Measured scan of single mutants.
Amino acid sequence: HNLTITQGKLFFHYNPKLCLSEIHKMEEVSGTKGRQERNDIALKTNGDQASCENELLKFSYIRTSFDKILLRWEPYWPPDFRDLLGFMLFYKEAPYQNVTEFDGQDACGSNSWTVVDIDPPLRSNDPKSQNHPGWLMRGLKPWTQYAIFVKTLVTFSDERRTYGAKSDIIYVQTDATNPSVPLDPISVSNSSSQIILKWKPPSDPNGNITHYLVFWERQAEDSELFELDYCLKGLKLPSRTWSPPFESEDSQKHNQSEYEDSAGECCSCPKTDSQILKELEESSFRKTFEDYLHNVVFVPRKTSSGTGAEDPRPSRKRRSLGDVGNVTVAVPTVAAFPNTSSTSVPTSPEEHRPFEKVVNKESLVISGLRHFTGYRIELQACNQDTPEERCSVAAYVSARTMPEAKADDIVGPVTHEIFENNVVHLMWQEPKEPNGLIVLYEVSYRRYGDEELHLCVSRKHFALERGCRLRGLSPGNYSVRIRATSLAGNGSWTEPTYFYVTDYLDVPSNIA
């Protein structure tokens, strides 16, 4: 807008934040220059609390790290170098490059900038070799853009010569660093050979998330399962459950009422301010606690030095998902009996873990797994792929695949051998790939016309006998059925096997 004052003059007093240069501009645009008398524009009460600059400061050096910015700028000295009290560095987070010096300023003089007072450097006698002032900004957020400017702080001049310097606002972004852990990993099994893994992005990506790394490792069953005799009275049979499938998407929606109208769909109840505040506090606490764990609990591995020492970490090797089922080394339970199943799973520490690289999504279907087997899954978020990966501390989750139908069934015939004193040795093959492992066998036998009897055969007993022995049988026709019990439950009964026990007292003698 054009402003013209045809008559009258300007009068400025007691404006401590208004620089004289701005008042002189007002004289020019209003056409009143030359009308004012000496005392109409006070030299001592206008701009006496402001830094009124008329020179431009330029930054000469900028260096960044993930949490620091090192700045240096060209030296500046007023005509009387004693008038320079120091520099004021202003900075704040700036997602967009549209910041002005006066953003967030209120009537009390406060604003949204963080201000650092910096002492002037030592003055050199040689004007050509003056030290460049600077400042190291610490405690910054990774991968965050900051708006920065600097200006001088000078003393009051009796001659009211307006001098000083100020830089333009520059924008500097800190470097990326390792992201925080992925949030809320959930693993479920939808079949006997697959596990579905879902997660949420890290709360602090500290860069642009480029991919996720998912490692999985087959877990050995508890050692007590191999040692305890679950045929003993009072000892509860062990059981394991597989990871249940995901709930429906509708039930997972946030901010939804727990109660549904019987007449149909209901609208979600909005969260109160107290609920939102509580969630923010919980989120802040979780982030602080995660940072504490990362800094205190997890110790970084030592990389190899120039002395030739090897990095103890196993090298990563990509495998196809079809090879995942046989990740671990199978060892027989008892070496003397080769027909026992290889369900003991000690994992070799030198073995390469299978892994998958996930790009542009937060889910993965891990296939080719062994049925009813526990897996430990390790999830890392990465925001750099080359020249070397920059990934987060791992988040861990466990899951067990679903049982395989008929995996616990005894394959092959049940054979028998009759000894003296009416002892019958029953023999059968253990299931080759049971659900988890076989903890015991149930032997059901009966003599024709009598009630059915049951015998429990422990895992250890089966390994020693290759089956079991029935003792003290009365003469007669017998039928026997056997079924295995694994961590997933009972298998199917075998087809009945028949044998006849004679009275050993009636056996004919070869003595003449």
Rank of each mutant, 00 (worst) to 15 (best):
S203T: 14
N206A: 04
G207P: 04
G207M: 15
N208H: 06
I209D: 05
H211Q: 04
H211L: 10
Y212K: 00
F215R: 07
W216C: 12
E217T: 13
E221Q: 03
E221N: 05
D222S: 11
S223W: 05
S223Y: 11
F226G: 04
D229G: 07
D229R: 10
Y230C: 11
C231W: 01
C231Y: 02
L232R: 12
K233R: 12
K233L: 12
K233P: 13
L235D: 08
K236C: 06
P238C: 02
S239W: 10
T241S: 05
P244Q: 10
F246G: 10
E247H: 07
S248Q: 15
D250K: 08
Q252E: 10
Q252I: 08
Q256M: 10
S257D: 05
E258V: 04
Y259I: 03
Y259M: 03
D261G: 06
S262K: 04
A263E: 06
A263L: 11
G264M: 13
E265Q: 12
C266M: 03
C267F: 14
S268L: 12
S268N: 13
C269E: 10
C269F: 05
P270K: 11
K278W: 10
E279F: 12
E282S: 09
S283M: 08
S283Y: 14
S283D: 08
K287C: 06
K287G: 09
K287Q: 08
T288Y: 14
F289I: 10
D291P: 04
Y292S: 07
H294S: 07
F298V: 12
V299A: 15
P300M: 14
R301Q: 13
R301T: 13
K302S: 08
T303R: 10
T303C: 08
S304K: 00
S304Y: 08
G306T: 13
G308V: 15
G308M: 14
G308T: 12
E310Y: 15
D311R: 05
R313T: 06
R318L: 05
R318S: 14
L321W: 11
L321S: 08
L321V: 09
G322R: 14
G322A: 15
D323T: 13
D323S: 07
G325F: 10
G325N: 10
N326L: 10
N326P: 10
N326G: 01
V327P: 10
V327T: 11
V327M: 05
T328Y: 13
T328C: 09
V329R: 07
T333L: 09
T333D: 06
P338Y: 10
N339W: 11
S341I: 08
S341K: 13
S342N: 07
S342E: 12
T343V: 08
T343M: 09
V345Q: 12
P346L: 03
E356I: 11
E356K: 13
K357H: 03
K357W: 03
V358G: 14
N360I: 05
E362K: 07
L364M: 13
L364R: 14
I366D: 00
L369K: 02
R376T: 10
I377T: 03
E378K: 08
Q380G: 12
A381E: 01
Q384L: 05
R390C: 10
V393Q: 02
Y396L: 10
V397S: 14
A399H: 08
A399I: 11
A399T: 09
A399S: 12
R400S: 09
P403H: 05
E404Y: 13
E404D: 11
K406N: 00
A407F: 10
D408S: 02
V414K: 01
V414I: 12
T415G: 03
E417L: 05
N421R: 13
N422R: 12
V423P: 02
H425P: 01
K432M: 10
E433Y: 04
P434S: 08
N435M: 00
N435Y: 00
N435L: 00
I438Y: 03
I438D: 03
V439T: 10
L440D: 07
Y441M: 01
E442R: 04
S444G: 03
R447K: 07
Y448R: 10
G449W: 07
G449I: 11
G449S: 10
D450L: 08
E451S: 15
E451L: 11
H454S: 02
L455H: 04
C456P: 03
C456L: 02
C456E: 02
V457I: 03
S458R: 10
L464M: 10
E465F: 10
G467A: 05
R471E: 04
P475I: 11
R481K: 14
A484N: 00
S486A: 03
L487T: 08
A488M: 06
G489L: 03
G489F: 12
S492H: 04
T494Q: 05
P496M: 02
Y498A: 10
F499C: 11
Y500M: 05
T502C: 11
T502N: 08
D503L: 06
D506A: 12
D506Q: 14
